[in-house]
Nucleic acid binder design. Sequence first.
DNA 1: CAGATCACCTGCTTGC
DNA 2: TGCAAGCAGGTGATCT
Length: 224
Amino acid sequence: MAAQLAGRRIAAVKRYGKFIVVSLKGGGFLLIHLGMTGRLLLGGERGKHTHAIFTLDRGILLFDDSRQFGSLQVSEEFPARVARLGPEPLEVSFEDFAAGLGRRKTRIKALLLNQTFLRGIGNIYADEALFGAGIHPLALAARLRGDRARKLYDAIVRILTDAIAAGGSSISDYVDAEGRKGFFQFQHMVYQRTGEPCNTCGTPIRRILVAQRSSHYCPKCQKR
DNA sequence: CAGATCACCTGCTTGC
DNA sequence: TGCAAGCAGGTGATCT
């Protein structure tokens, strides 16, 4: 991979959901996914979990990833993994979103995590958006019509917009390219708050597994 | 085909 | 203190 990239120049960098696509001048792409614990760091010291070092004109870019769920991939064609993704949640229209819900015969939590439905929503923001909309994680997607679909759409937009403004959620690893933590974890209403009182009604927050992922919700505020 | 399940890997916390 | 179990911002291969 180093040989494929040596001397190449970057034409553009664009994010698609959780993927970063670096377009190379003269053709070709570098695909980056941070997985759960991946970090791209400008400058800094090489560490125990540094898997790649990019030497750029302006300095060093490190790719660190303790859990190794992240990935780097070079390809000639635009990566298929990215081409398959659904629309950006902050770009999709309500009409398309609602139509997509109606076609899916699955639990809404699983659908929000499905990157071919919408790209970029992960476990934290799925739980927070469902709380914001008053929808139970086990609710059937196809049954969310009209007002409930609208509430979910609005909650997704609101949660993502607020989280981005706060610099994201730093539970243990996440930092931006300058090494700065985000602050949205302090605004989490349900995520990793199992047993703590709901900020709206005081009922203890519950944790269940949906699609093998931890799902946190208020049993009183969120309806199936 | 869509949906469910499991595997990948390391580090931290919890409970005995 | 030691050790096992459980948990963690995700994706994709492989089942049904």
